[in-house]
């Protein structure tokens, strides 16, 4: 009985300390998100929401070719950016975790630090590098070469800008996963005759796949919602799905349609995260159900 009471009070203490923030998130993030789900079934007339339940907003998105083109473009962009970040980040994070020694922390913080200077200023900086008057093309034309049209207000420029913005998340997620990885397991695999490639494929990657999936989600989601990067690096035809979504909340005032676009964005992002996490095989991921340090 006494034990039971003790457990009960432990639960109570944990709740008392963690509930305020949880309620804050539920009330000020989840409920607003639920409101746009509701609004996506309403309609807007001269800047007011009218509770006239219908599916027209979704039908509009799914039957308008322009919207579908933007959606498809954003999806391919996000997949490409996530995949390239994944391929690039693995060797980098691996090197820091395995050979970083006492410089591990500083090496990791150096990859994460640019994230804190803000999206807008980083895109501004990227604009000075790419683009027709960016330093790369100015340099090429100064030494008498042709400028690279590829980098001038194109989807490639947007993609490079998005990798620039979000690759720190991928490096960080893989690095944090590798921190708890026991590199001796690799030696064990190789002593037993596995080639380095096979050891990586069958030991390192599965054991760090959850961290990698978190990295994929953290790159895919903001890329899919990108508005600033395509606007400043993509040029006239560079708009992505996020831009037309944001546009609905600007001067047009078509909030209900914009809400439906938002719901669709959230659904597709969640679907991506769901599919990615479906590939996690808990039996091979080293998952013990415990937090490190217990």
């Amino acid at each position: 009985m006494a034990v039971k009471q003790f457990l009960h009070s432990k639960d109570l203490k944990a709740l008392a300390l963690s509930l305020p923030g949880a309620l804050f998130i539920i009330f000020f993030l989840f409920i607003p998100l639920a409101t746009i789900v509701v609004y996506s079934f309403w309609r807007t007339e001269s800047y007011t929401m009218i509770a006239d339940w219908n599916l027209n907003n979704y039908l509009t998105i799914l039957t308008t070719k322009t919207y579908l083109t933007f959606l498809f473009r954003s999806l391919s962009m996000s997949l490409a950016v996530s995949f390239i970040s994944l391929i690039y980040s693995w060797p980098v994070a691996y090197y820091i975790a395995k050979y970083g020694g006492r410089y591990r922390l500083i090496l990791t913080m150096l990859t994460a630090a640019p994230f804190f200077t803000g999206i807008l200023l980083r895109v501004t900086a990227m604009q000075q590098i790419l683009g027709p008057i960016g330093v790369v093309n100015m340099f090429l034309s100064n030494i008498g070469l042709k400028p690279l049209h590829l980098l001038m207000y194109s989807h490639y420029a947007t993609g490079l800008g998005l990798i620039y913005l979000w690759i720190p998340f991928m490096v960080l997620a893989i690095y944090l996963s590798l921190l708890t990885f026991d590199f001796k397991l690799l030696d064990a695999a190789m002593i037993n005759g596995a080639s380095p490639l096979r050891a990586f494929w069958e030991v390192t990657l599965p054991l760090n796949w959850i961290g990698t999936c978190i990295g994929l989600a953290l790159v895919f989601i903001p890329t899919f919602a990108a508005t600033i990067t395509p606007k400043f690096l993509g040029g006239v035809n560079g708009a992505l799905y996020g831009n037309i979504l944001a546009h609905q909340f600007g001067s047009t005032g078509t909030w209900a349609l914009g809400s439906a676009m938002g719901v669709l964005m959230f659904t597709i992002s969640s679907l991506f995260v769901f599919i990615v996490f479906k590939t996690v095989n808990l039996n091979r991921s080293g998952y013990t159900g415990k937090i490190a340090g217990e």
Binding site: P32, L218, G242, W255, M265, V273
Partner: peptide, 26 residues
């Protein structure tokens, strides 16, 4: 609880922006 606390990381800024705008305004 841990999932709940880190869940905002998986909502892009654009969606937080527009949903709180709609919620606060309407």
């Amino acid at each position: 609880m841990i999932l709940l606390y880190i869940s905002p990381l998986f909502v892009p800024g654009l969606l937080i922006g527009i949903s709180t705008l709609m919620f606060n305004a309407n």
